[in-house]
């Protein structure tokens, strides 16, 4: 990976509506270079928050979307074969540690547990990253910070962080914003009028009430934003809601019928 800092910078201010004191608290955590964990259901604004903070602090941001096939070398780096032998290529975590970026590991629980262990030395007082294959010990740049996000809503017992990982982070607990705030967010983000946004939020909440009764996850703020965007572009509100809010989250016909009814009842 290149070490050009500029390309990782967030240049335009992302829209982020604070729900509480999280911005101030994050700044304090960054000042002390404490690792941060952001928890919350999907689509509630975790990634947006991190992006916003990177912008606010003026630091480069390197985001890694974790998946279950990810290995330690995907984070740290690996040898590539070249005509004259092999060449070492830094992984995103290494790059971030070298250039002093905020490294954001999105949905960390998706990664295998052996993978998550490589971040341990970076997250305590050592702030180092040993590259055992290369035989190098990287001292983290003073600006480096590690942020992970995860969604505790996963029902699977397999997908949980180890205590030894959890206890290296300070944490923010995010949830979908309460109705008026969410309405403002939708309106700001998409430019849709407040009344329609409020209706969308109301439909979103009907689905959140069903969490655990056939739905694993309610309608996220992100999906509501999608619906609002469609409406803003001239799509009929009922169609937009069906397409962006009801259909994506369920295949269960009873739940779909209930959500459709909620949409009809709200947009009379």
């Amino acid at each position: 990976m290149t070490t050009d800092k500029e390309q990782y910078k967030v240049h335009k201010e992302p829209f982020y509506q604070a729900q509480g004191k999280e911005v101030v608290l994050y700044e304090a955590a960054y000042a002390a270079r404490l690792p941060v964990m952001v928890k919350g259901p999907t689509g509630c604004g975790k990634s947006r928050f991190v992006e916003y903070m990177a912008w606010k602090l003026g630091k480069p941001l390197i985001t890694v979307a974790c998946n279950e096939d990810m290995t330690a070398s995907d984070l740290v780096g690996r040898y590539l074969l070249e005509a004259n032998g092999t060449r070492w290529l830094d992984g995103p975590l290494t790059t971030a540690a070298r250039i002093g970026a905020i490294c954001y590991l999105d949905e960390i629980v998706e990664a295998r547990q052996d993978t998550t262990v490589v971040i341990h030395p970076l997250t305590d007082h050592r702030r180092t990253l040993p590259l055992d294959k290369k035989g190098e010990l990287i001292e983290a740049h003073p600006d480096f910070q590690l942020v992970i996000s995860y969604n505790p809503g996963y029902q699977s017992l397999m997908k949980d962080l180890k205590q030894s990982t959890k206890q290296r982070f300070t944490a923010f607990d995010f949830d979908y914003p309460e109705a008026t705030l969410e309405t403002q967010i939708i309106a700001r983000e998409t430019g849709l009028d407040e009344a329609t946004s409020a209706k969308l939020v109301k439909i979103g909440q009907t689905a959140r009430n069903l969490k655990g009764h056939g739905l694993d996850e309610g309608i996220s703020t992100r999906l509501i934003v999608y619906a609002a965007t469609l409406i803003k572009n001239g799509v009929d509100p009922k169609d937009a809601c069906r397409m962006a809010m009801a259909r994506p989250i369920t295949d269960d016909s009873d739940i779909r019928a209930t959500l459709d009814h909620a949409i009809d009842a709200t947009f009379a």
């Binding site: 009907t206 689905a207 009430n209 069903l210 009764h213 056939g214 009873d254 739940i255 019928a257 209930t258 959500l259 009814h261 909620a262 009842a265």
Partner: peptide, 13 residues
């Protein structure tokens, strides 16, 4: 029955 149950939960908590 299930749909009504979902209806109660979703729309009326």
């Amino acid at each position: 029955e299930r749909q009504l149950d979902l209806y109660l939960r979703a729309l009326w908590c």
